[in-house]
Design a protein around this nucleic acid. Structure first.
Length: 223
DNA sequence: CACCAGGAATGTA
DNA sequence: TACATTCATGGT
């Protein structure tokens, strides 16, 4: 049981940390890894690429995700329609650099079929966020983080993404004692203005910051 | 050569 | 609920 005052202080801290990260690293929508994901507004094809990359990036180094993305693009399969039509084996070989290629190929096919069979990208736009999330989660190979990546970055819904970097960020700044996905998601969503633009940039900045922290960890006491 | 990277599903206790 | 294991590649 934490006091009301303690909660207010955490809220302020989370907002302050955002400002600090922003001034330290700048806006993530400029050149760099997050250029596409944080771009606003996005075209239809850009949203499709993000959906594809959200699958590819599962437990994978981003460099390898870029390699897989590049190969899909070369094969003209970097879009939902083409993936729905392509054979598993073709996709498997193209995305191989991102690892877990058999599982990811199946997931890509499933989500591609989901978005073209009755649920076009356009129709998805009017779906209730919680309903869309449930439908994404029902697809094999899509868990909470990937579903939320898609909701936040492709469909621009105000859903905060929780990943390993975010958990370490919370631990590092002592923002919570609970680390379940739901509790951390509530922590950020209840502390910030409900604005998908802030959620997008904040999550990107956390990843940038924590990666940066990894690089020069020599006098680091954090996990 | 060992270990890790922007997870998820499944099984166990 | 909380862990352990499996899936698999390319980097360091």
């Amino acid at each position: 049981m934490e006091s009301h005052l303690a909660r207010i202080k955490i809220v302020q801290k989370i907002n302050l940390l955002y400002e600090q990260l922003l001034s330290k690293h700048g806006n993530p929508s400029v050149p760099g890894q997050w250029q596409l994901w944080c771009k606003r507004p996005k075209s239809k094809i850009e949203k499709e690429i993000i959906i594809i990359q959200a699958i590819l990036t599962q437990r994978a180094n981003w460099k390898n995700v870029e390699m897989a993305t590049f190969q899909l693009k070369q094969a003209k399969l970097l879009n939902i329609q083409s993936i729905a039509e392509a054979q598993y084996e073709i996709i498997e070989q193209l995305i191989r650099p991102s690892g877990f290629y058999k599982q990811k190929a199946k997931t890509l096919k499933e989500i591609a079929n989901f978005f073209i069979s009755g649920y076009t990208m356009k129709k998805s736009e009017i779906f209730e966020t919680s309903l869309l999330r449930k439908q994404l989660l029902s697809i094999n190979g899509i868990g909470q983080e990937t579903a939320d990546d898609i909701l936040l970055y492709a469909f621009e819904r105000p859903i905060f993404v929780i990943d390993e970097y975010t958990k370490r960020f919370v631990r590092r700044h002592n923002l919570s004692k609970q680390f379940s996905y739901e509790s951390l998601q509530k922590l950020f969503e209840n502390s910030l203005k409900k604005d998908y633009k802030i959620y997008q940039d904040y999550h990107a900045l956390i990843v940038i910051e924590m990666k940066n922290n990894d690089k020069n960890r020599h006098s680091n006491i954090y996990p």
